[in-house]
Amino acid sequence: MGKLIDENGIRLDGRRWDELRPIKIEIGVIKNADGSAYIEFGKNKIIAAVYGPREAHPKHLALPDKAIVRCRYHMAPFSTEERKSPQPSRREIEISLVLRRAMESVIFLEEYPRSIIDVFVEVLQSDGGSRCASITAVSAALADSGISMKDLIVGCAVGKIDGQIVLDLNDLEDKEGEGDMPVAYMPNLDKIVLLQFDGIFSEEEFKKAIDLAILGNKKVYEILKKALIEKYFGTVDEK
């Protein structure tokens, strides 16, 4: 394997260490859903849809004092280079779980007792960092549905390639690099709601990685904000 960063500090896709891939967010793409969003995060193409809060079926799932969240993260069979079996894999089940936990920390569940909020995430094309892109799309969809939430969530990964901490790994950097750390973040409350880590970092590297992740997340937040304002208020003027 060749070098992932050249002598000028440029990565394989032409980015510097602290640059994000291009991001595009569209809100309200699915008419039948109560809230929906589509995100392009580098080569990731992901649709998120929120249904509810609605009556829980089967009824025994419902809790008397708050809503429950059900999340399905799924990769389309055509989303990867080799065909992926449509059956939920171990990885997809795990991501569904971590997305759900991140959402539960941000939604005001007590406002909707005895109900269920269904969240579906469909990956149409996958690249590195799809769980971070997914969580950004989900929070956009939740805001679109008008469910009470404490803050928006944005996600962005950091990693280590060629011994250097870099922002937002793509698929190749994720596979060939030395570490990958997805971080989801509430920008207004300054809280981390998801943090996973694969690889080996020293303590300094870890601290640097967290700071970089938060910096990247704030950039994603600006894009998400812009998309929401555009959908709800037409233009992004006067601010």
């Binding site: 809230g35 805001a143 549905s145 008008g146 404490k150 207004n188 929401l228 709800y232």
Partner: peptide
């Protein structure tokens, strides 16, 4: 005091009124 929804807010001194634009 934080907002829970996408909406319009009217702030007049101590009075805060939020008009949501979506929601069940």
């Amino acid at each position: 005091l934080f907002s829970l929804k996408v909406g319009l807010v009217e702030i007049e001194g101590k009075e805060v009124k939020l008009i949501p634009l979506a929601g069940p």
